[in-house]
Nucleic acid binder design. Structure first.
Length: 820
RNA sequence: GGGCAAGUGGCGGAACUGGUAGACGCGCUGGAUUUAGGUUCCAGUGGGGCAACCCAUCAGAGUUCGAGUCUCUGCUUGCCCACCA
């Protein structure tokens, strides 16, 4: 028996050699490009097998694509700004920079340990001044275009992290990082005008055929486009008007009250003396509540302001209420309450004894019976003045036109999502390159003074903004007038860095610009992006926004979407449970590399489930792949000398059915790997199953057919075929087969039609759809021949039993169905 | 409450376009090798029946010569959104 396979020695040997020889450098020749990218990791510490699944998938795709003849770009870097580094500083006095660099060093080591094929010459680290200077540069370009602006607005404040959050970072009213209920505060903050791209962000989704539908749907819902009408109600005894937005202007005649958000500025002006105390108390009670309490408070409540509005078409006088269910941030912060045709308004009107006036009739019913529940569908208008009798759709148009003619309304599109709040009151991030001068006001830092460097040795306490307290940093001179000025003390949301990093990889050492547009024209966009579902809205939406902006500036060409195809990998459980430090069940990379080997780990992760599904890491499961690795070694290694003489690019003719079957198994496996790659299905679990069959066939023959050309060919082809999955063992066998160059730079094994062809098929014979016989036959057998053979089968004859055959269904090489 | 996805052996899964359900692996059972354990190798492994056969892809209906796959209803699970006017 061959020596047992020493995976530790082999894996270390090849990782060192690949490193030294730089075989994974991105080629820049005439070959077609392919850009494979896994989402930029945050360097939080140790990697576990969950990370390994993500990087293995990307690596298998990169290696397969490389062997299929593409110029593959497969880079790696570190999303290294962010709160964990600061929290480490607060918790144990660590320097965020040192802490981050140590983590990066460790994670980089572990990523290499997984046998990945990254082009490390393109590595980027977002907390490097040479990276974030381009953050600042991009920020200034957005600023010039009016797409970055500062304004005071009610924002989400996390009291634990002591910073504001983007809307996208508030999950169920809680901070996405620390789960603390988020508060509302009125603060002056920097925003990026992502809403200016709303329609293009929506329309672009339709073009993204390589994206999961779920993800596209979630982005559509997040953007939340709704078409409607904005119009205004007059207020009795004043010149003031209140604007409302509605998608159902056809129900206008059914408005029986007007509801406004407590924060609406009009409230102060219109509230009557008598009602003032009650309204103030109501607004106060809401203000002191966290966002979470307010949204989970399903009970609708409100207070009458004492004021009345006038319906612009019916001229009815309706009361104005302050309510908790109208949101200040959406639409105009006020609505016309139509209880008969809206569930929320119905609910509210019932609780507060407000009238319910039906103005839409269900098609086919003329009679108006008192509504027991709101009728929210379209219908035909009743009791609606000139518009009575119209369909809802027609009335929406007609009423909008009437309001427009009166000068008090217009068609309007509203979006649910808000501009992206990008400033953070934290230290470990990119400084926002703006200076405040008492004479010149808000002044952008000129490009030639970038980067605005984040100062070192800043005390971090977790209270307030660290940079705001740092006199060395804050005090500067105005770039315009040279007078004393103050720097912006806020830093950027870390999602800013990750919104464009994939372009920096294309030209990572460019000192003149973030990237050369000519290089981007070649390498962008990313062809295959791989990452978790948690970034469905945040990172993926922001990146799409940035890319469209870059496209508009001419910095990228072609399509205006950054990621042509997107794949969400599933996560990894440990014995059915979520991996966590507190459970003590985290399966680490170092440990796995030492106990089972990296090749076995990679094979297992690709084999256990399709890559999009949740995988379960178990001892038994991984042992199956350890066995496989050893089986391959035992089958191939002893024959590597003998197999040297075989040309792997020229398949031998089989002499026996066994050899034929073996050659077929070889080519079926190769074809599966190629098909899964080209179809972008990536179900390599089925490929590895076919590799099992290949190795099983080979194992059965290596002892008895040592001299067989087919066996030696199968031995020689195996490292070529498993190279993307088990790169170390493949390389070792390849070397022992007498090759001086890397198997990873070889073309993949081309599936041979002769090997894939079968000489005998199994034809299923059914009677009335039930299987009664299986015939061995040559491919291409005719229906008549099949029928004749079928009638000779006793099982078929017994079923026919003299009955009349009414119909014959013949599927060539598959099945014959006789209907009696 | 709304939306989307999914339910196949003891387990992970295969069957991609309606055409041999359960490939491949894990586990389990028996045997061989071994001082023993482990390793390795061989055989078996959805349920029922002596057998011919019958029953099986969450449940029920439908379409079809034929349904794991298509349609409808219900159940279960997972994820996402939840006062967005």
């Amino acid at each position: 028996m061959a020596d047992t396979y020493d995976f530790r020695a082999v894996e270390r040997k090849w990782q060192e050699r690949w490193e030294a020889s730089g075989i994974y450098a991105t080629p820049d020749d005439g070959r077609e490009k392919y850009y494979v990218l896994e989402m930029l990791p945050y360097p939080s510490g140790d990697l576990h097998v969950g990370h390994a699944k993500n990087y293995t998938l990307g690596d298998v795709i990169a290696r397969m694509t490389r062997m299929l003849g593409y110029a593959v770009l497969h880079p790696m870097g570190w999303d290294s700004f962010g709160l964990p580094a600061e929290n480490a500083a607060i918790a144990r006095g660590a320097d965020p920079n040192v802490w981050t660099r140590e983590n990066i060093a460790n994670m980089q080591r572990q990523v290499r340990l997984m046998g990945t094929s990254y082009d490390w010459s393109r590595e980027i680290t977002t907390c490097d001044p040479e990276y974030y200077r381009w953050n600042q540069w991009i920020f200034l370009r957005l600023y010039e275009q009016g797409l970055a602006y500062k304004r005071e607005a009610p924002v989400n404040w996390c009291p634990h992290d002591q910073t504001v959050l983007a809307n996208e970072q508030v999950i169920d009213g809680r901070c996405w990082r620390c789960d603390t209920p988020v508060e509302r505060r009125n603060l002056s903050q920097w925003f990026l005008k992502i809403t200016a791209y709303a329609d293009r962000l929506l329309a672009g989704l339709d073009e993204l055929e390589g994206w999961p539908d779920r993800t596209k749907t979630m982005q559509r819902n997040w953007i939340g486009r709704s078409e409607g009408t904005q119009y205004s109600f007059g207020i009795e005894n004043t010149e003031e008007r209140i604007s409302v937005f509605t998608t159902r202007v056809d129900t206008l005649f059914g408005a029986t009250y007007l509801a406004v958000a407590p924060e609406h500025p009009i409230v102060e002006q219109i509230v009557t003396k008598k009602q003032a105390a009650g309204v103030r108390e109501f607004a106060q009670s809401l203000r002191s509540k966290s966002e979470l309490e307010r949204t989970s408070l399903m009970e609708k409540a409100g207070v009458f302001t004492g004021a009345y509005a006038i319906n612009p078409l019916s001229h009815e006088r309706i009361p104005i209420w302050v309510t908790n269910y109208v949101l200040a941030e959406y639409g105009t912060g006020a609505i016309g309450g139509v209880p008969a045709h809206d569930e929320r308004d119905f609910d509210f009107a019932r609780k507060n004894g407000l009238p319910i006036a039906q103005v839409i009739a269900k098609p086919g019913s003329d009679i108006t019976v008192p509504l027991t529940e709101p009728y929210v569908e379209d219908g035909r208008l009743i009791a609606s003045g000139d518009f009575t009798g119209m369909s809802s759709a027609r009335a929406r148009k007609a009423i909008t036109e009437r309001l427009a003619a009166m000068g008090i309304g217009e068609a309007r599109i509203n979006y649910r999502f808000r501009d992206w709040l990008v400033s953070r009151q934290r230290y470990w991030g990119t400084p926002i390159p703006i200076v405040y001068c008492s004479a010149c006001g808000e002044v952008p830092v000129p490009d030639d003074r970038l980067p605005v460097v984040l100062p070192a040795d800043v005390p971090i306490t977790g209270e307030g903004s660290p940079l705001a307290r740092d006199e060395r940093f804050i005090n500067t001179n105005c770039p315009k007038c040279g007078g004393p000025a103050k720097r912006e003390s806020d830093t950027m949301d870390t999602f800013f860095e990750s919104s464009w990093y994939y372009l920096r990889y294309i030209d990572p050492r460019n000192a003149e610009q973030p990237w050369d547009p000519r290089k981007a024209a070649k390498w962008a966009p990313v062809d295959q992006y791989i990452g978790g579902t948690e970034h469905t809205v945040l990172h993926l939406l922001y990146s799409r926004f940035f890319y469209k902006f870059f496209h508009d500036r001419g910095w990228v060409s072609g399509a205006d979407e950054p990621f042509t195809r997107l794949f969400h990998q599933g996560f990894v459980l440990s014995n059915g449970e979520k991996m966590s430090k507190s459970r003590g069940n985290v399966v680490g990379i170092d440990q796995t590399a030492d106990t089972t080997g990296v090749d076995a780990m990679r094979l297992f992760l690709m084999y256990v489930t399709p890559p999009e599904d949740t995988a379960d890491w178990t001892e038994e499961g991984i042992s199956g792949r350890v066995r496989f690795v050893n089986r391959v070694w035992r089958a191939c290694e002893p024959l590597t000398q003998a197999a040297r003489s075989v040309d792997v690019r020229s398949m031998p003719e089989p002499d026996t059915p066994e050899e034929k079957a073996l050659l077929r198994a070889v080519h079926v496996a190769a074809k599966s790997a190629i098909d899964e790659t080209r179809s972008r299905r990536f179900h390599y679990n089925t490929t590895i199953a076919k590799l099992d069959e290949y190795v099983n066939a080979l194992t059965g023959m290596v002892q008895t057919h040592r001299e067989s050309r087919a066996v030696l060919y199968a031995v020689h082809a195996l490292p070529l075929i498993i190279a993307p999955f088990a790169p170390h063992m493949a390389e070792e066998l390849w070397e022992r087969l007498g090759h001086a160059t890397s198997v990873h730079l070889e073309p993949y094994l081309e599936p041979d039609e002769r090997a894939l062809a079968v000489e005998e098929i199994t034809l299923v014979v059914q009677v009335n759809g039930k299987i009664r016989a299986r015939l061995q036959a040559s491919p291409g057998i005719t229906e008549d021949d099949a029928f004749r053979l079928a009638l000779e089968q006793s099982g078929v004859r017994a079923q026919l039993d003299g009955k009349e055959i009414r119909k014959r269904i013949f599927v060539p090489d598959k099945l014959l169905n006789l209907v009696v």
